[in-house]
Amino acid sequence: MAEPLICLGIESTADNLGVGVATSEGEILANVVSVHVPETGGIHPREAARHHSAVMGEVIAEALEKANIIAGDIDVIAFSQGPGMGPCLRTGATAARAIAHRLGVPLVGVNHCVAHIEIGRLTTGAEDPLTLYVSGGNTIVSGFEGGRYRVFGETLDIAVGNMLDVFAREASLPYPGGPAVEELARGGRRLIRLPYVVKGMDLSFSGLLTAAIRELKSRRWSLEDLCHSLQEHAFAMLGEITERALAHTEKGELLLTGGVAANMRLRSIIRSIAEEHGAEPHYVPKQYATDNGAMISWTGLLAYRSGSTTPLEESYINPKWRLDEVEIPWR
């Protein structure tokens, strides 16, 4: 039997630098993540990129060590080519090009959103799920149809994770904001009415964020009640578009992936919707929920095995690369 192929993947779309090692048998040998925590405010793309390039060498070395391989064992180098923040993407792409060139192995540019779905499928065993992908940069309901991951619903403005992070920052909660909001929400009792904006299968969070910050500054409510209300409104909206897409596509599985997938309240909503529609719920494990290198290395292998590589001259980054632009030949 042939030896399994080994792929090293670099993820650098935003504040996480992740390096993962996967085999063509679907084994994740390493998944090392280094997080850039901004001193103040949100992610500054250039600051985050500076962090990524500063720790790149050690994170790669640690991944190789964890995977118990040497550089010469690597058959393919994958990197996240987009969507994401330009300076961050460029840092990962530059490292990937250099290593691939040095080792003389093929390079594969991976779509970050596709990778979140593929790592979800790999680690949960879901075969053909409708996917709710929720993170700091993305909010997408998608399902596989006709050779691509079609987008059935998405945010018209900011991502749900971004919305939670900004609110948390305004409320002086510790970083990262999502888990802090979730923790406080557990103690919330009263529901404060906030905007609920669903348009077909799309939704919008900017009005909800503005209103929540206004209520916060009014000092009329406890922070627990506000966090509770913010989550209940945002997640009810996510639940509604997910349910609409599930009813529309009639998929038998429902996958929750991305950083916000760690939220237990959102999971319970997904479970309830799946039950209602006779679908099987799946939640990506925590270490693969946030941005990570394992998902890039695994998706890179899927692409490579179906004959797709990225020549150097086409390896420029694509900060606005849409999920539904990507052909998926391995399905």
């Binding site: 923040m85 330009g86 940069g137 993305n138 018209l156 971004n162 900060p319």
Partner: peptide, 8 residues
């Protein structure tokens, strides 16, 4: 066209 990926 609105940036739905990188607005943070």
């Amino acid at each position: 066209r609105r940036g739905r990926y990188v607005e943070r």
